[in-house]
Write a protein that binds this DNA or RNA. Sequence first.
DNA 1: CTGTTAGCGCATTCAG
DNA 2: CTGAATGCGCTAACAG
Lengths: 340, 340
Amino acid sequence: MTARRITMKEVALKAGVSVFTVSSVVNDSAKVAPNTRQSVLEAMRLLDFEPNHAARSMKLAKSMSVTYVVSDPLHFTDEAVGVNLAGMLEAFGAHGYNLVIESALKDFSKLKRALRQGRIDGAIISAMPPGPALEELMLWTQPFVLFDQPSAPPGVPTIFASYRSGIVAAVAHVAARGRKRIAFIGGPPVAQLNVLHNVERYTGFTEGCRNAGVTAEPNLIVNSDFSIQGGRDAMRQLLEKPLEGMPPDAVVCATDRLAVGAVHAIQAHGLRVPHDIAVTGFNDSEFAIATDPMLTTAHFPVHEMGFRAAELLIRRIEGTLLPGQERLEIPIELIVRGST
Amino acid sequence: MTARRITMKEVALKAGVSVFTVSSVVNDSAKVAPNTRQSVLEAMRLLDFEPNHAARSMKLAKSMSVTYVVSDPLHFTDEAVGVNLAGMLEAFGAHGYNLVIESALKDFSKLKRALRQGRIDGAIISAMPPGPALEELMLWTQPFVLFDQPSAPPGVPTIFASYRSGIVAAVAHVAARGRKRIAFIGGPPVAQLNVLHNVERYTGFTEGCRNAGVTAEPNLIVNSDFSIQGGRDAMRQLLEKPLEGMPPDAVVCATDRLAVGAVHAIQAHGLRVPHDIAVTGFNDSEFAIATDPMLTTAHFPVHEMGFRAAELLIRRIEGTLLPGQERLEIPIELIVRGST
DNA sequence: CTGTTAGCGCATTCAG
DNA sequence: CTGAATGCGCTAACAG
C-alpha cells in the first residue's frame, strides 16, 4: 500500500556518506562540511526521506506528544472546547508537539499508563473538581498543568481566570447604572462539576454588592443549573415570588446560557431588557449575541488560555519553567452590550 | 524525575523466565503455561511494568495514533467540534487508538509527513472544500476518511449527512401546516467554505417546494453568511422589501444561527413566531433552544457521525473495510418545536 | 511450551 | 570532520 520506507542507511548510500553524517544533518547535531551537507540534503529530497518517528522517539526517550484531558464528558458539548484546542494547537504546533485528546477519566490510570509507556510527554488537565483524584495528581512528578483550577497549591503549574473578578465587574457595572435590587442566578448549590467556580462566582457577587454599597438580598439569589432552561425557570421564580412587592432591577448570571433564559423569561413576563431589568452573562460565548438585546458579559479568554497553558506545559517538559512562574491568572474583562 | 523505566528484561529476570515469555503474555501472542503466566503477571505488577510504546511501534510499524484534521480554523468556534470529538474518541478509545488533533493545513504536506514518519496510521479529514487539495487527496493510498464531503467519488471512504433531505423535510413540514409563501435564507452565494453544502441546501429548498406544490419565489430567497447577525439582516430584508405586498409566512434557514437572527428580526418587526411566520433552523445545535419559541430544526447527528467516521477509519487501517461499504450517508431528522 | 537470537531505524560513542 | 560499531526495548522467527 504505502511505498516502502526509506531509511537513513539508504540516504547515506545514495549520498556516498555514512549514516552518522546523515543523522548529523537531520538533527543539525554535529558539524558537517557544507558540500557533503548539500549532497545529503539532495539525497534526502530525491528519496523523499522522513526520519522514522518511533525509532527516534525510542532513542531520545521522548514522544513529542502531549495530552489534553477533558475532565468531564459534558464539557465536549461546550462550544469553548474547540476554541481552547485551537489555542493549544497554536503553541504546540510551533514547538513540534502533537496534541492528543483524551476524554474524561474516572481515575488517572489510563493517563499514567500513557505517560509510563512513553506515548506522551505531559498533559494538560482541565477543570478537575476538587477531590481525591485532584489530591493524587498533586503528588505527580510527571509534567502536567492544571487548567482552570485555581485551588492548586503554589508550585503546581496552573492556569486559570478569575471568575470572581468577572462577577465583581458585572455587579459594579449594573450598580454604576443605578440598579439597586440586584439578583444573582448561580449554578447548582452543590455541584459535582466545577464546584469551585460556583463558589468563586457567588463570592464575586457578594463582594461586588459590598463594593457597590448595595445589599445582597438572600431572596434575590437563586441557584440553578447552567442551562438556558435553568435560566428561564430561575428568572420566572424571581419574577413571580412576591419579593416584598419589588422585583429585581438587574440580574447577574453565572453563565451566558442562564442569561439567555433570563432574558426570555423577562420578556415573556412583559418586561423589557434592559429598561425594566438589566441582565449580564458570563463567558462571552456566542450565546451572548443570541439574544435581543445582546448580552453584556464577562469575556472568558478561552483561546489565550489554551495557548498559554500549552506554553506552560512545554516549558515544564523542557525544564525551562522557572520557579515562581507556575501560576498564571488571566484577567477577565467585561464586554458591555445592550442588555445593560 | 520519573522513575527509571522498567524493561521486559527486568521483568523476565524477576519472573525467572525469558524475555520472549514476557512478550508472549503481554501480547497474548504465544501460548504460555498458566502458572508461568501467573508469575510473569505478578512480576509485571510488582515492577509496575509498562511496555515501551516507541519500541513496540517501531517493531510493528504501527503507531496506534490517528489524526483528525479540522479543515478550517473557523470550525474550531463551532460548538459541534467537541461533540464530534467525543464521538470519535468513543470508537478510537475502544480500539486502542490515540486521537491527535491537527488544525487547518494549507496543503497536506504536514499530514503526509506525519504519515511517512509513522507518527500516525491514518486521518479523518473534515469538510474539505472542493478544489485542488481535495483532488490531490483522492490519489492517496494511505488510510483516510473524508468527513462531511458527499462529492467524493465512489470507493473513497466518506461519511456525510444529507443536508438536502434535511431541508426538504423542513419545507414539507411547514407546507403541511398550510404555509404557502415559504422563504429561504441560505449561506453565502459563492463561499470558500462548504460550497457544496450550500448548494445541497439550496437544492433541498427547491426540491421541497416542488414536492409540496408551492412555488419557490426567487425574491423570497436570500443569501447571507451563517451568522446570527446575518440572519437578522436577511430577515429584515425579507420583511421590508415590498413583496407584492405579501410577506412570507414561513422561512427555512440554512443554519440555526441564521434562524435565531430571523426570529429576532420577526419579533422586532412586531410579528409573532410561529403565528405570523414559521421559522426552521438547521443542525439542532444548542442555539435551537436559545430562542423563544424554540426552533424546529433538522437534527445533524454530530456525535454519531464522529463515532462512525472513526470506525470507518479503523476498518480502513486494519484492512477490514469491504468494498461497497466505503460511503456512509447518515439520515437527518426534523425535530419539531415551537417555532412552527 | 520456552529460550536464543536477530533485527526494526536511529543517535552516538569511539577511532580514524 | 567522517565512519564503523553499539544498543535503545521490543517482537518474531527459529530452535530446543
